[in-house]
Amino acid sequence: MLDSDIWYSFCRSPVTIASALLTILFFIGALFAPYVAPFNPFDLASIDIMDASLPPFWQEGGSTKFWLGTDDQGRDMWSTIIFGARVSLFVGFASVIFSIIMGVGLGLVSGYVGGRLDALIMRIADIQLSFPAILIALLIDGVARSVLPRSMHEEVAFYVLIFAIGISGWVQYARTVRGSTLVEKNKEYVQAARVIGIGPAIILLRHILPNVMGPVLVIATIHLAIAVITEATLSFLGVGVPPTTPSLGTLIRVGNDYLFSGEWWITIFPGIALVLLVLAINLLGDWLRDALNPKLR
């Protein structure tokens, strides 16, 4: 019944359908980038410096071969955007999963066990929460850069980035899950399980976890949007993914230098792609939150 209600509200909202379609397109593009993109921007053989800085096809000097134009090195913008979105989504997804595992796990334990452990976890969460995610991610990234020798930067940059963004987001999951766990653990079905004699681990996993996952799903959707933005921001600031595998943020950073010389497409098209991706995910998250919240129906 619940599921069909969600489906119904989905079908009635054209904006939601459009954003779902857009998100799916981005995912397909990201997954199958090498097959979808007309060029491989990392294949040096296919790049001709003579094609550098071509405008999009509708402007004078543009060609339909590179319909969104080319960057300063002659790479096809459309292809770099597809590959960039792939990197952005990968980092975003991985960080969200990292946050969920850490946050949901700590939240469940904190809420169910209570006492000193709960106080400790929540105190750490409070302190972390008073610092914006972007600052924490920046800091971790910065520290990792200082600790690791320069030669290793490129290799581990991805993992550092995922760790930095992931760890900056666990608090919200932990707090929400802890709150729901506190409510659920006092519900009579949990007491019934305890009366049967079932142990805490199984109660947490079989009984409580499925009942607290609803809000987690909503947070995860919105968090994916935030993670993508954070990654883009870090890459824009030059401390994100290595320049050899540019994400959308890196592309914008690189293009930003050409803004004043009139080659606006190098930065604006990746920017539009980023906004569309984030907007579509946000719209989905917004809808999901309303659809799962029975009070609003």
Partner: peptide, 22 residues
């Protein structure tokens, strides 16, 4: 507001620069 939270801060800056500055 949804568009607002979907626009990364740096991109807002770039767009403003492009439009009002350049």
């Amino acid at each position: 507001s949804l568009i607002g939270i979907s626009l990364p801060t740096f991109l807002i800056g770039i767009l403003l620069i492009l439009f009002f500055g350049v």
